Amino acid sequence: ALNRGDKVRIKRTESYWYGDVGTVASVEKSGILYPVIVRFDRVNYNGFSGSASGVNTNNFAENELELVQAAA
């Protein structure tokens, strides 16, 4: 299972961040479909780089994520 702070690569092909590595911000335990919230260094097309207006978190299912580096 994934944990907060883990570095993960995104495998959801239609995602803006496909192939990117993000950090797990939190994992919901309530049984929702996309329980893993991942935070990225770059914002998506809703904002400009360096601006706070873009979105830099997204929810994924565990099977859409590949663990790159476990949290220390």
Rank of each mutant, 00 (worst) to 15 (best):
G19R: 04
V24C: 07
K7Q: 12
V68I: 10
V43H: 09
V8I: 02
T13W: 09
L67D: 00
I10A: 01
I37H: 08
A1E: 10
L65Y: 00
L65D: 03
D6Y: 01
K29E: 13
T57H: 10
R39L: 13
G31V: 10
A71T: 08
F40G: 02
L67A: 02
D20F: 06
D6T: 02
G50R: 00
R42W: 07
R39K: 10
P35K: 07
G54D: 04
N3I: 14
L67P: 03
A72D: 12
A1V: 12
R12Q: 07
F40Q: 02
N44Y: 15
V24L: 01
D41R: 05
D6A: 06
T57F: 12
Q69W: 10
V36D: 00
S53E: 14
P35F: 13
F48S: 14
N58D: 15
V55G: 04
G22F: 03
V55F: 07
N59E: 09
A70F: 09
R4C: 15
K11W: 09
A70H: 11
D41E: 14
R39A: 10
V27D: 03
N58R: 05
G31I: 14
A72K: 13
L67G: 01
R12C: 09
R4E: 14
V8N: 00
I10R: 01
Y45N: 15
A1I: 11
Y18K: 01
T57N: 05
K29I: 13
A25S: 09
E28V: 11
V38T: 00
S51F: 05
L65K: 00
Y34A: 08
G50N: 08
T23K: 05
E64L: 15
S51W: 03
G19E: 08
A72E: 14
Y34S: 05
V43F: 15
A70Y: 10
T57V: 09
E14N: 09
S15R: 01
G22Y: 04
N59M: 10
V43C: 15
N3G: 13
T57Y: 11
S26F: 13
A1S: 12
Y34M: 10
N44W: 15
G5M: 01
L2Q: 01
W17S: 00
Y34P: 08
N56F: 04
A61M: 11
E64N: 02
G31C: 14
V27A: 03
L2T: 03
V43M: 11
G31A: 13
Y34V: 04
N56I: 07
L2F: 12
L65S: 03
S53N: 12
N59Y: 08
N59V: 06
V8S: 01
I32T: 10
E64A: 02
F60Y: 09
T57A: 09
L65M: 03
T13A: 11
D41N: 05
A61H: 08
Y18L: 02
